[in-house]
Write a protein that binds this DNA or RNA. Structure first.
Lengths: 162, 162, 162, 162
DNA sequence: TTTT
DNA sequence: TTTT
């Protein structure tokens, strides 16, 4: 049973174009690097800036949309959860990584694609180039990486008895 | 297309048992009244409490779960969005209501049901009694809110020009 | 003692210019009307849009900043809490209102002021007209937006190529 | 200027008692390990659980409160931001760490201290044992576990004893 | 690496 | 009333 809440809300800008891969099953996995910058006063009263670079991962349909519409510089709202991983590097050392697993995304504009018709090496809405080894198109829609059910299906379906 | 984010996160306690209704289509709709209490210092430096009573609505499967497991006094985490409605009351007057439409819920323990097996007039896990799919539409007024404002420093310091 | 969490996160656009008032003590109180639009499919499978108009209130220094930099059409991130009020209208009727009391705000760009030098009845960076007794403050505005939806899909379905 | 939003909301349980240190300036720094568990169905339709262990850090007054009132097993709501750090380990290797910097905290009850006066190896409200090099008595006993805003005042003020 |  |  789910115990606890693990929720992240980010608004930031992409440091690079997204990278999309596909699983053998055809599911898109898109990664972005998202910057958020905060300020605080240090002990001398000077404004200090600090930027965090979040590794955000989008799966499935969200991964396709993220890969297709986000670009370096894009401003985006992301909601998701934190996932910590531990793995053994090629040097035999234990490594740790932290990812934000997105389950909601909304573009906010900003640098919006870096090439609205002019100069872009890739049209903003072109299907994403993909590097994957996917066998085909069986991208079936399915459950979510994290989170809870969300009804509201037949919301307006009848009269509502209140 | 979705434009914007409308997100609410509440942790609070139920003021009463949930009320569950069903649409003619059989969808559960459960309502609870959820209290959150905040404190701030007033201008005289005294601690001032203020309780907000949120009307939270759960639809579908979440409505069934909420109706089944929540009870007066239960502590619960709710995530959802705000919905404002306007309707004409039986007195012909225009009325406004605000509801929190839940899309995630998690019980947190606490008063947990008001009767751990003993003495409750209804076992904590019994299927909820339901009032059926009747057509009546009488919107009740929300539970009475308390008093006192919320935010920044000298808020209550003078008259408020609105 | 504080009991519970009452948190709201909004990203939306202003339907009108902000309105700023000042208390006799000189505290700014700024109100905005903020739209968030969501979509869902109705039972016939059609996309249904619904816009909520949030009344957001900023106090103190945040009220000054909001009043100075936000304009009709501005895109903004707001974090705060919900406050329900009950009052007696001039018609003697009991009325209810719901406000979002902001405690954090960040401009996201967008229509950014409705008058970039051209045609605005008030320059975007002019100190706000104020009805109260005190002066303004100098602060700079911020960045720009659009939008996109956000579904969800499969997860661990196969090997993950990262 | 701040650009972006970096917000984390956690509800979980402590895996161990908190650890509190003090800077030379006397600022409390408390660390906890907080578990959140989520479930999802894997591709075979089985319920899969996964627990994330968050390293949460509280500074200043919040650090004192957290150190004083939280215990192994405590259930707690935490709001804060993600901070990624990179450092060189004693083995000369570059290491990465991720912390949640808390700026709001609220106890939720649950295991609440593991010993209401009886049997605990340390009374729940005893002043925390501290390992630090702080100068003395400015550790005032904090008020009740209220949700409070964030200090982070003299955040960088000295060496940080972790 | 973004952004302002 | 905003926005796309």
């Amino acid at each position: 049973m789910a115990r606890g809440i693990n929720k992240v809300i980010l608004v930031g800008n992409l440091g690079n174009d997204p990278e999309t891969r596909y699983t053998q099953g055809g599911m898109a996995i898109t990664r972005i690097s998202l910057a958020t910058t905060s300020v605080r006063k240090d002990k001398d009263g000077n404004q200090q800036e600090r930027t965090e670079w979040h590794r955000v991962v989008f799966f499935g349909k969200l991964g396709e949309i993220a890969g297709e519409y986000l670009r370096k510089g894009s401003s985006v709202y992301v909601e998701g959860s934190i996932r910590y991983d531990k793995y053994t590097g090629q040097d035999g050392q234990e490594k740790y990584s932290t990812d934000i697993i997105a389950d909601e995304m909304q573009m906010l504009g900003g640098r919006e694609g870096g090439g609205g018709g002019a100069g872009g090496d890739r049209p903003a809405r072109a299907p994403r180039q993909d590097y994957g080894n996917q066998g085909g198109g069986q991208r079936r829609p399915a459950p979510a990486p994290a989170s809870q059910p969300a009804p509201i299906d037949d919301f307006a379906d009848d009269d509502i008895p209140f």
